[in-house]
Design a protein around this nucleic acid. Structure first.
Lengths: 205, 205
DNA sequence: GTCTATAAGTGGATAGAC
DNA sequence: GTCTATCCACTTATAGAC
């Protein structure tokens, strides 16, 4: 018999996923115990195994959900910008920063992303879906960059796709290194944001 | 096996470190068992614990040794270039590529570096020494970039330090993503190298 | 759906023989 | 210095009560 999806079941899954994001970020996939995730979510292991087949399934679900949330957030901000018609009025560096700054990049988010990245490196199958998801993100960002270019505000020395890829890689590299200093979210975003600004300057004609 | 192996303490430690590099890269720090490391090195756990206090000490020793090797390799190549007086004759992009291409960046190396990076993110103390080591690397690379600039071959839109940082971050980000496709070392280095070339072009005046 | 209890297995670390 | 044998803590996953 298939278990009916009730509101409380979804709520339990959501709470477990939320707790898992923190625990996986802090201690890693292998270091995290199912017990620790359950404890933080306020459940016991029995409840967990009635919602997820294994720790690994939980991780894959979480990774996919995090990736989709990032993509959705970027697309939402892009849509908002297009609706508000701010592209011609705002300078390109600021625009790019506003697109990429997810608003909740703190130390734990950086750690979780690094954990997911590492898993993508080890597991070829998961790596393929990770890359696919990231390419979607790059494509969305490249789209808005192209719009900025088309608006005549800026001319680039590389195509929009390459620009988006570089911005993403530099952003990630910078906030990871900054997070190693134990800094908080605000400082991370400032450092990442500054790096993006400098990259935009470099890519300009 | 007819080859007599001198079982000196240093030899044992070196073999354990070599095995650990592979095992940690493949399965991660937590995922790796001391047993697996010993098996690959051809020892038992007893021998291991007579050489290292714990799995963690092994990891820290390995990480430090890997970092020092990278730094030494870069400095060696820089010294060789200065001795051979090739700076004025070779184009800047190629020079940068030759400095950073460590010659043994295959999938496993990328995985090990990612594992070390993740630990640096979680453990603030280790993170500080990781950043210190990386800053040394950046300083060395910045030094040679400054030499190239001083030779009049090229003019940059950013200072040498910032250029070196960007090159390092972009190189890492590109080869990591390429490694997710399951590619071999040759392809990784080609992709990283191309990215460096494009970055140099961008940074040029 | 969630709980308690527990089975079954794993892995880090130590003691003492050779 | 290295080996064998072993201890003990911990973890995943399951079974069955509520």
């Amino acid at each position: 018999m298939t278990t009916p999806v009730t509101r409380s079941r979804e709520n339990t899954r959501a709470r477990l996923l939320h707790a898992a994001a923190q625990v996986f970020a802090e201690t890693g996939l292998d270091g995290a115990t199912v017990e620790a995730v359950c404890e933080r979510a306020g459940f016991t292991r029995g409840a967990f195994y009635s919602n997820f087949a294994s720790k690994d399934e939980l991780f894959l679900t979480l990774a996919s959900s995090v990736g989709e949330a990032r993509l959705a957030a970027v697309r939402e901000r892009i849509t908002a910008m297009l609706d508000e018609n701010v592209i011609r009025e705002t300078d390109p560096g600021t625009l790019v920063r506003q697109i990429m700054d997810s608003g909740d990049d703190d130390r734990l988010d950086v750690m979780l992303m690094s954990e997911i990245r590492l898993r993508a490196l080890r597991d070829v199958e998961f790596g393929a879906s990770f890359l696919h998801q990231e390419r979607e993100l790059v494509r969305s960002i490249a789209g808005i960059i192209q719009q900025i270019v088309d608006s005549g505000q800026i001319a680039l020395r590389v195509d929009a796709q390459e620009a988006a890829r570089l911005l993403m890689v530099v952003w990630e590299g910078m906030i990871v290194r900054e997070a190693m200093g134990g800094d908080d979210g605000e400082r991370l975003r400032r450092v990442g944001s500054e790096a993006l600004g400098r990259m935009v300057e470099l890519m300009k004609v």
